[in-house]
Structure formats: C-alpha cells, structure tokens
Design a protein around this nucleic acid. Structure first.
Length: 224
DNA sequence: GGTTGGATGGGCT
DNA sequence: GCCCATCCAACCA
C-alpha cells in the first residue's frame, strides 16, 4: 500500500472556490478526493486529506435519507444551496456530508475517510487511541477526531470553523459500491463510492468496479 | 406517547 | 463474521 506523501505536495490553506460545490454530485464526490477537510475549535486546528467519499442523490436514490424528496427536519439542509454541511447522528456517531445539487434537489456527498494531516495529537486525544491508521478511517471516526458534531449542521464549507481547502489532484481514483446500505433495493449496486487508489486510510478495502484517471481535456476523471 | 431501525464502531469468536 | 451499545429522528397512533 502506498500512502499519500504529504511532504512532497503543496496543500493550500484557502477554501476551495464556491463554484466547486455546483458540480454534479457524482463529479463533486470525485473532485473532493485529495482536498483537505479542516475543523477549528478552541482546542486547536485539525485536518485531514479526504480519501473516501460517497454520493447520495435523493430523488432517485433509495439509500439516501432524502429518497423520494423526503423533506424532514433532518434532511432540510439538503434542499438548500450546495456547499453546506449536513450532519446527522448514526447510533452514537455523527456523520458529515457536503450538500450538493441545485436548491430543492436534495443531494449530498458523505465524507467517509481522511488521511490525518494537522493536529494529529489532538485527534489522538479525542479518539483515545494512538494508532495513526485508525484515527480517521471511517465516517464516525473522522468526525470524532476533528470535533465535528451536530452544532456544525448547516454551516457553509467556505469559511471557518469548518471548511475544505485545496489539496492535490489525484493520479488515480477508484470507484465501487457504497458501504452499509444493504436495505436499499437497486441502489445497493450503484457505484457511487470513490476513494484514492491504494490509499491505506480508506474505511474498507474492497475491489473497485473501475479505476479512473484525470483527463485534462475534459476536466474530469475518466475510465482508462 | 410508543415503536422502529440505522450512510457505525469496537470487541470478540 | 457476529453482537450490541445507545439514541434520536421519523413515523404511527
């Protein structure tokens, strides 16, 4: 397994352009790979490279909380403009999504795993463990490590305390089925999970349905 | 007001 | 792989 080499890469400190969030949800889920999720609290700044995402496209996606345009207190933020935070509770854990799609189109990208970058000691303290590989390799783990909770519901990702900064453009990304949605009819087979190929900080190591590479001509990831 | 079940994680077999 | 902690939103009444 090769891991992302943090030393040989420039990671920007400014939030990514707001236009990024206007990309179609499946494209946004891919483009977010390699960017950096940051959370600032009184305890300090923590961040990680986004290495795994999943797309949820409400109206047509039985696995999405907003399936069939179900609009509730919980899903309300997904009906708002792209670029906001959709946090929700799963058992004892908080999970964080980036709202995408047009207003009144309830779509989002779940952030499933990070490669720890800044504030690693604080993250270890919050998680109560010292193993770097286990710090943020899951959607519930990464929110705990970064101090993301329900007070972050509805925040814009374009400014502190919760924001996403430019990172690097991955050479290769992988695409496959999403995790933990087995009761979702046909949607279980949608290949809407994306991760950095061979990155060891992903939540699960599964066979990819496809490998994609960045294509300068079209400005998107394409099968090779 | 009661019931249900989940976009998880940690522990154990 | 299986078990279950733990808890709230959603839904039904």
């Amino acid at each position: 397994m090769k891991d992302t080499n943090k030393e040989n890469r420039e990671l920007g400190s400014n939030p990514i352009p707001e236009e990024c969030y206007l990309l179609p949800t499946l494209d946004l889920a891919q483009v977010l790979l390699g960017t950096v999720l940051v959370k600032e609290t009184e305890a300090g700044l923590t961040s990680g490279i986004i290495v795994e995402t999943e797309a949820y496209i409400g109206p047509e996606d039985q696995a999405a909380h907003s399936f069939n345009n179900r609009r509730t207190k919980r899903t309300e933020v997904m009906f708002q403009n792209a670029g906001m935070s959709y946090t929700y509770l799963m058992h004892t854990h908080c999970l964080v999504n980036v709202v995408s799609g047009f207003k009144n189109h309830p779509e989002a990208v779940l952030i499933r795993a990070l490669e720890p970058l800044a504030g690693i000691d604080l993250m270890k303290q919050r998680r109560g463990i010292s193993d770097l590989k286990s710090l943020t390799n899951g959607p519930g783990k990464l929110t705990r490590a970064l101090g993301i909770n329900m007070t972050d519901y509805g925040r814009a990702f374009t400014k502190p305390p919760l924001y996403i900064t430019a990172g690097f453009k991955p050479q290769s990304i992988s695409q496959g089925k999403r995790i933990g949605i087995e009761n979702s009819g046909e949607a279980v087979n949608y290949p809407w999970r994306f991760w950095l190929t061979d990155n060891s900080f992903v939540s699960r190591h599964k066979q990819a349905d496809a490998i994609l590479h960045w294509d300068e001509k079209t400005g998107s990831f394409r099968k090779t």
